[in-house]
């Protein structure tokens, strides 16, 4: 890390003195700072990508629960394939779609540890559907953070199982035709029906309030894991500005106007008595 402070760099770049109130910028006054468990490197995600926000809140929860040394993560294949470069916890990189199986292997031999997978829609709900459904059905005591942006980001914009009807992608160039290309998969609702599943909740990270809620939900899920309640999934409906061919702002608007009405936010299943 550079020894220069942010203030120095900004002053150099803007070529003018920056007015920071030193009376306020004191450690005791910090209300938000990057979580320590998020490794201090630039993330490869596109500007405005919800993956980064999801990484951030997941690591905030790990920080706040103080479980950095007790948690093992499983990274997927997709845009978040490099999640282990950003999360400062022990991690394994799974084959495409197999994260829940890998997590099962880890959790079964170390039931005392926290285990999470971080998966996108293609990984979790297309190629990895079997692994996801069966891990859920066995009630594997793991947390699945499911990022749903309705598109394949890493391979540059192909149709995902969760692509909205009529939505244009590189493999549904005339819009997803449900008659020939199938319907969007409500994987969270599907999993919520299984008795092994303890908690399923859907959130977004496009506004400050939604970020807060999503974070709370992840914290809850890890708490349930500690109590051994079973399979927990937090779905995060988010954006893909680059492959939706939108600015980050427009993409968040699309999340608000199109994605959320189709994938309504909130708890889908909560443990009994919670």
């Amino acid at each position: 890390m550079s020894e220069r402070t942010y203030v120095d760099i900004e002053a150099e770049l803007t070529d003018q003195p920056i007015n920071f109130d030193e009376d306020i910028c004191l450690a005791e006054n910090v209300v938000y700072i990057k979580p320590q468990t998020l490794i201090d490197v630039p993330m490869h995600y596109c500007p405005g990508c919800g993956h980064s926000t999801a990484h951030k809140i997941l690591m905030e929860v790990v920080d706040e629960m103080g479980i950095q040394e007790e948690i093992i993560g499983v990274a997927p294949v997709g845009c978040s394939v490099f999640a282990y470069h950003y999360m400062n916890v022990d991690m394994q990189e799974a084959a495409h779609g197999r994260a829940c199986a890998v997590a099962t292997g880890i959790k079964r031999i170390m039931p005392e540890k926290y285990v999470f997978t971080y998966q996108g829609d293609g990984d979790l709900a297309a190629i990895g559907t079997a692994e996801t459904v069966h891990a859920a059905n066995r009630g594997e005591n793991i947390l699945v953070v499911f990022i749903n942006n309705g598109i394949y980001g890493m391979t540059s914009g192909q149709m995902a199982p969760t692509t909205l009807p009529g939505m244009v992608t590189t493999t549904s160039p005339y819009g997803r035709d449900v008659k020939t290309q199938g319907y969007p998969l409500y994987i969270s609702n599907l999993l919520a029906n299984l008795p092994g599943v303890a908690y399923v909740s859907r959130h977004s990270v496009h506004t400050p309030n939604n970020v807060r809620k999503a974070k709370k939900s992840i914290a809850k899920a890890l708490e349930y894991q500690k109590q051994g309640l079973g399979f927990c999934m937090v779905e995060i409906v988010t954006n893909c500005p680059s492959n939706w061919k939108m600015t980050p702002k427009q993409s968040n608007q699309f999340v608000e106007e199109k994605m959320i009405p189709f994938y309504p936010l909130g708890d889908i299943k909560v443990p009994e008595g919670k």
Binding site: Q92, R98, A101, V102, G105, R108, A130, E131
Partner: peptide, 19 residues
């Protein structure tokens, strides 16, 4: 553990071997 498929079984092996 009886996995749901050989695909899952080998990936469970990956996870546990990785630990």
């Amino acid at each position: 553990l009886q996995a749901e498929s050989e695909v899952a079984a080998i990936n469970m092996i990956y996870g546990a071997a990785g630990a």
